[in-house]
């Protein structure tokens, strides 16, 4: 049983969580008190001053009371100004990453996340970070606005095409924590999930070593299968024959596909590579030209692996 989870708030797993939750709970109790006072007063007045005879009048006509009015203006004013300071302090802390933060580049695209570690030279589709290590995410999107939200870390930031937006955190415990996209981004917005895996520093080093060459010890088709989910093809293409946002990959190798412009092409290595790099040139009949171009995103080795994987899907 996780003790940091409460009725109102999820588990805490970053250095921000405490201060955010503290402010939240402080406010929660203040508002419960206000609410209770108001509701009790209303209920009491409604019962006590209920009209008993049809022609009954009010027993007093009070229009104004300076003492009351000053008090109930001053008290909320003081409270909200205090809240402002609390919130501002917490927020500035969230925005300024420590200088020793480890950097990870995050790319959002419909409807998948990918993470590149510039220093370690590895890429992944699940964020892996060491515990007790400040991490700074430098985020951008290749299509529309997304938003990167880690509830257990109490932080989020929009991921915007055409610019970088950053976010930092320091995880306080190991475990796997949910990541959501929280900026509506179209059809599969609510499937655009991933996770942050917080590990010990040793585990992190071991992971980096293994991730540095993900193709190691794998056949090209096996590597292609990994890339299929890692590069986000899975969001639009199925491998079981059902139609998704894009055509399925099952059983397409070698067949002839009709295109939007009336031509048809045979699915071979050249066509598949062209589809990845400039998908808008040969648009498959019955589909929208919405596939993002992967030119420059995929290395030659990765392209070959994806081709091999598609070829293997009989």
């Amino acid at each position: 049983m996780d003790t940091t989870k409460s009725v109102w708030l999820p588990e805490q797993a970053s250095t921000f969580a405490n201060s955010v939750d503290w402010a939240f709970n402080l406010y929660l109790w203040i508002s419960v008190a206000f609410f209770a006072i108001i509701v009790v007063l209303i209920a009491y007045f409604v019962v006590k001053y209920a009209r008993k005879r049809p022609d009954q009048l009010a027993t007093a006509q009070i229009v104004h009371n300076t003492f009351l009015e000053t008090t109930w203006t001053a008290i909320p004013l003081i409270i909200v100004m205090a809240l402002f300071v609390v919130g501002m302090k917490g927020y500035w802390n969230m925005r300024v990453a420590p200088s020793n933060a480890m950097q990870v580049d995050v790319t959002g695209r419909k409807w998948a996340w990918s993470f590149d570690y510039p220093k370690e030279g590895v890429s992944t589709d699940t964020l892996v970070v060491p515990v007790h290590q400040p991490v700074r995410l430098r985020m951008t999107s290749t299509d529309v606005i997304h938003s990167f939200f880690i509830p257990a870390f109490r932080t989020k930031a929009d991921v915007i095409p055409g610019r970088y937006h950053s976010l930092w955190f320091e995880a306080t415990k190991t475990g796997v924590f949910q990541v959501f996209c929280t900026q509506y981004c179209g059809t599969n917005h609510s499937y655009m999930w991933t996770a942050v895996k917080v590990v010990t520093p040793d585990e992190f080093q071991a992971w980096v070593a293994a991730a540095a060459d993900p193709s190691k010890g794998k056949t090209p088709a096996e590597f292609g299968e990994i890339l299929y989910s890692q590069k986000g093809c899975v969001a639009c293409h199925t491998v079981d024959g059902s139609t998704g946002i894009g055509p399925t990959w099952k059983g397409i190798w070698g067949i002839s596909v009709p295109l939007e412009d009336g031509r048809s092409v045979t699915v071979d290595e050249a066509y598949v590579k062209k589809s990845m790099n400039e998908p808008a040139t040969d648009v498959v009949k019955g589909f929208q030209p919405i596939m993002p171009p992967f030119q420059g995103v995929l290395s030659d080795k990765e392209e070959d692996a994806l081709v091999a994987y598609i070829q293997s899907l009989k």
């Binding site: 402010a23 919130g87 109490r154």
Partner: peptide
């Protein structure tokens, strides 16, 4: 009277969204 009741909740839940650090968590939920 319902307006009074509901607006008290609507107002109180609005103020919390002005608290910067807390809004980061609550935004778009």
């Amino acid at each position: 009277l319902q307006v009074l009741f509901n607006f008290t909740i609507g107002g109180l839940t609005g103020i919390i969204l002005a608290i910067l650090s807390v809004d980061i968590h609550l935004h778009d939920t």
